[in-house]
């Protein structure tokens, strides 16, 4: 974790909460980007690269689940952890279906959040690794019988997905 800063997007309409959690996670070595509503979150997601996201569900304007869908579309390997005060089993299940990594009801213990972040990051690395592995295998297979051009094309794809 230390060798490379984890890029984290935090989305919450509760500004005081947003500021303090951001500060605390920054102190713990995260590279934090804050968004106080759905639109800001989408904008940030489109312009930057993120490993993980903390997302509130109930927000004015764009709802958390909508933001989740956009984030998952923009970033293939991004893992999203839902943080919400309006916790219920129904919404947890719904979010997991939509591709959220985990679901933490507010208020939570910081240790639990950090654990979850760690697990999410590992999951993301794992997923990325497996994907890369598959790609490498494909390149290797291609290398045996294809032109240099097609190899190059595959490598470019790999780079793009780094995002």
């Amino acid at each position: 974790m230390d060798e490379k800063q984890i890029k984290l997007l935090i989305v919450d309409d509760e500004v005081k909460f947003l500021n303090s959690i951001a500060q605390r996670l920054e102190m713990r070595g995260f590279d934090v980007t804050k968004a106080s509503n759905g639109q800001e979150a989408v904008a940030a997601a489109q312009s930057g690269k993120f490993d993980l996201a903390l997302l509130d569900l109930k927000m004015p304007g764009m709802d958390g689940t909508e933001v989740l869908a956009v984030l998952k579309k923009e970033h293939k390997y991004l893992e999203v952890i839902i943080l919400t005060g309006h916790g219920s089993m129904d919404s947890a299940v719904e979010c997991t279906k939509l591709g959220a990594f985990s679901y933490l009801p507010k208020p939570y213990e910081l240790e639990k959040l950090l654990d979850t972040l760690r697990q999410a990051y590992e999951a993301r690395l794992n997923k990325k690794f497996q994907s890369d592995q598959a790609r490498m295998d494909k390149i290797a297979r291609l290398a045996t019988g294809s032109s240099a051009l097609s190899i190059l094309r595959e490598m470019r794809k790999l780079d793009d997905e780094e995002k």
Binding site: K16, S20, R24, T84, G85, P107
Partner: peptide, 20 residues
């Protein structure tokens, strides 16, 4: 009750931040 969770989360975070 859900509404209460939000300020509670603020309290928890602010307190944690102060400790940090």
């Amino acid at each position: 009750a859900h509404e209460i969770n939000n300020p509670l989360a603020v309290i928890s975070e602010e307190a944690g931040l102060m400790k940090d």
